[in-house]
Simulated scan of single mutants.
Amino acid sequence: MLGPFSTTGIGSMPHTEVLSACELILQHFDIPFWPQMPKYSFNEQMIPQFSEGLPGVVFDSDKVYIRKDEEIIVEWLSNYHDEMVSPMSESFAVGLYGMQKLIKDRLKIFKGQITGPVTFTLSLKDEDGKLVYFDETLRELCLMHLKAKVRWQIEFLRTFAEDIIIFLDEPILQAVGTSAYISVEQDEATRLIKELVSFIKSLNAKAGIHCCGRTDWKRVLALDIDILSFDAFSFFDFFKIYRDEIAEFLDRNGYIAWGFVPTTDDLNALRDEEIIEKSLIKIDEISKTLPLIRKNSLLTPSCGMGSLDIPNSERICRVLKELKSRMING
């Protein structure tokens, strides 16, 4: 299903023209994905986008929070079941519906994404400004809500694609265990992710996790995920330290999605050929001791492209295509 060095994206795109973003993705990526469009609407940012339908949620101008209405929350929790769905409307996921309009022939594979439960609960606040992660009831509410979002998204994507991949976007994982989140227990953060990953896989979809920072890769690689996506441009040297854990992950038919093409200022500091050469050297180095890498690898930008301008996003697409060609042909 996943060809060696197939290309895909993380999610966000810089466009404000919906179909332009969708067309670019369909033209350039082996595994298409739906574009999250934060410059198009506040609703497209990673926390608001998946807050729609959350019990007690309030959208107030340019902010979103939960109002702790105990009656509403208790009723929702008492009625929750794993068959529940929470739809994403076009006003919160315009790129998802744009893809549906453009795709005429059924695709073999498609990638969706959702904000992971750790990042979601450590970003969303209640009406008093407290992070919902630190309220046990709200934390569970959010996890169940994200499950309902996942089920709906997978069912929606299956209307035009055979096989589905869902990435959990977890940028805050890089800070868990540091002084910034000293009161966040690693085991609890892991449990939240495990539950959502297990739920995705129970729906016969592949589960991936994306973290664009330096995190505890030993812990992440031990999760029952199918794909690990990370910023390999910046953190390759730190990641490769976990050779034994990477080997075990590959032996379980896990895939590494290498974010070799930078989405930061480094993009403007380097020529295309420099980016490609640096990537080839890294793969050559790690594949000498882990030969499965040459089979079980995907290629991506280092993170989402939503903060870039359109020409640079187009450049990244071209570089990824060329990088894939060079990886395969040597």
Rank of each mutant, 00 (worst) to 15 (best):
M1K: 09
S6T: 02
G9H: 00
P14C: 06
V18F: 00
L19G: 04
C22S: 07
L24H: 10
Q36G: 06
P38W: 00
P38C: 10
F42K: 00
G53F: 10
L54V: 07
L54M: 14
V58T: 12
D60E: 15
D62F: 02
Y65A: 09
Y65E: 08
N79A: 13
D82H: 11
M84S: 13
M84A: 11
M84P: 05
A93C: 10
V94A: 10
L96C: 09
M99Y: 04
K101Q: 13
D105E: 15
R106G: 00
I109E: 10
I109S: 07
K111W: 12
I114K: 09
G116K: 00
F120E: 02
F120R: 02
S123M: 09
E127F: 02
D128T: 01
K130W: 06
K130S: 06
F134H: 15
E136C: 03
L138H: 04
M144R: 14
M144K: 15
K147V: 01
K149Q: 11
V150S: 04
W152H: 13
W152V: 05
F156S: 05
R158I: 06
R158A: 08
D163R: 14
D163H: 14
I165S: 09
D169M: 10
E170T: 09
P171R: 02
P171D: 10
A189L: 08
T190Q: 11
K194Y: 10
K194E: 15
E195R: 10
L196P: 05
V197C: 01
V197T: 14
S198H: 09
K201L: 07
L203S: 03
L203Y: 07
N204P: 02
A205I: 01
A207D: 11
G208I: 09
I209T: 02
C211P: 01
T215P: 07
K218V: 06
K218N: 13
V220H: 03
D226S: 11
S229K: 02
A232S: 15
F233N: 12
D237K: 12
F239S: 06
F239M: 04
Y242K: 01
R243H: 15
R243V: 05
I246P: 08
I246R: 00
L250E: 03
D251M: 09
G254V: 06
G254S: 13
G259L: 04
G259F: 04
V261K: 07
P262W: 09
N268M: 10
N268K: 10
R271S: 15
E273D: 15
E274Q: 15
E274T: 07
E274H: 06
I275D: 08
E277R: 12
E277F: 11
K282L: 01
E285A: 02
E285L: 14
I286T: 08
P291C: 08
L292V: 00
I293G: 04
I293E: 08
L298I: 11
T300H: 14
T300A: 11
G304H: 08
G304Y: 12
M305Q: 14
D309L: 02
R315N: 07
L320D: 02
S325T: 13
M327I: 01
